[in-house]
Design a protein around this nucleic acid. Structure first.
Length: 338
DNA sequence: TGTGCCGGGAC
DNA sequence: GTCCCGGCACA
């Protein structure tokens, strides 16, 4: 059993990482509808980042405390999310709006024009179902995990917490979505072979979704693979902090683990409550992994020039009409192939 | 400097 | 899709 100091250190460490991540230029944010950022679903959810805690930690509190008493209070106490606050934060200059903007209002990264296939992956413990449409995954979560069989068409947005978007590059991705898994790797280097298990025994992801963590490093295409979610805690940490930590908001265990220099975040409600009051507004579970690849081996290399005579040399410029089409078009000669 | 041809534009 | 050409790398 850890001492309270150790637990505090875990929290502080987690807070440092999260703060660093949230301010990283690589932070991504979920697409949100304009009117829902603070007053819509998040308000209903009772979660607005707040810096009012005098403890100096990040905290979450209901936005309605001052402005809208009719809004249900969140089930999570402010202390539940203490790890989100950097104890060393010099001041509270990052106010609610700025913080939420930082976390949630950033523009969606521009998608690549093509070859990015978007899938949606259920993050429910021991599920990992992957569907091709958001509606499908939402329905799956509603019916299977939230037990809303009779209201399968109704969505209050809660399902959003339990799935993540996966974009994969179909240029190089091979068949088999079952091999998709959010695994981090160092930028510019191939994904390390199973790195997540041996050194990080505490990650809930490894504990609860082991199948999600292993296949990619073995079967993923080597040159480019990208898994991305549009959820909140996504960034590349500026520092290397090996390890993982856990926190337990309102009795629900979350864990955060990271691998440097990229990071994997995992928030997994260990005991999802089916009748959780609408809008408890817990932070979205998320995993975020960006695997980037070294430049293609062929990058910068040019096919060596053919040594044989080509149409140009054979027929000469004056007989250009005798050249093969490719030579006429200044393409690789098709008549005198090396 | 001549040649092969990639990359990209025009149609 | 065809056709053309700027420009680069290489011999």
């Amino acid at each position: 059993r850890k001492s309270s100091e150790e637990l505090d250190m875990d929290k502080v460490t987690a807070a440092m990482v999260l703060t660093s991540l949230s301010t990283s230029p690589l932070v991504r944010s979920p697409p949100i509808r304009p009117n829902e950022s603070l007053n819509g679903s998040w308000k209903e959810g009772g979660f607005v980042p707040s810096s009012t805690s005098s403890s100096g930690y990040w905290s979450w509190s209901a936005p309605s405390d001052q402005s809208n008493p009719s809004t249900p209070s969140p089930p999570l106490s402010a202390d539940s999310f203490k790890p989100f606050r950097m104890s060393s934060q010099p001041d509270d200059s990052i106010d609610e709006v700025e913080t939420s903007s930082l976390l949630f209002d950033e523009p969606i990264p521009r998608k690549r024009k093509n070859s990015m296939k978007v899938m949606f992956k259920c993050l429910w413990k021991n599920c990992g179902k992957v569907l091709s449409t958001a509606a499908g995954i939402q329905k799956h979560i509603r019916t299977i995990h939230l037990g809303r069989v009779g209201e399968s068409d109704y969505s209050d947005g809660e399902e959003d917490f339990y799935y993540t978007e996966i974009r994969l590059n179909t240029d190089s991705a091979v068949d088999g979505l079952s091999s998709i898994s959010p695994v981090s790797s160092s930028l510019g280097s191939p994904p390390p072979f199973p790195t997540q298990d041996a050194n990080r025994p505490e990650t809930s992801c490894a504990k609860t979704e082991p199948k999600l963590m292993t296949p990619l490093s073995r079967s993923a295409p080597t040159n480019l693979y990208l898994v991305h979610t549009d959820h909140a805690y996504q960034a590349t940490p500026p520092v290397n902090i090996p390890g993982s930590t856990k926190f337990t908001p309102n009795g629900r265990s979350f864990s955060i683990s990271w691998q440097s220099p990229s990071v994997t975040f995992t928030g997994t409600p260990v005991s999802p409550t089916h009748n959780r009051p609408a809008g408890t507004g817990e932070p979205k579970q998320q995993t975020h992994t960006v695997l980037s690849s070294p430049p293609r081996a062929s990058f910068g290399l040019r096919k060596s020039r053919g040594e044989g005579k080509k149409c140009r040399k054979v027929y000469g410029m004056e007989n250009r009409d005798m050249w093969c089409t490719a030579c006429r078009w200044k393409k690789a000669c098709q008549r005198f192939i090396d």
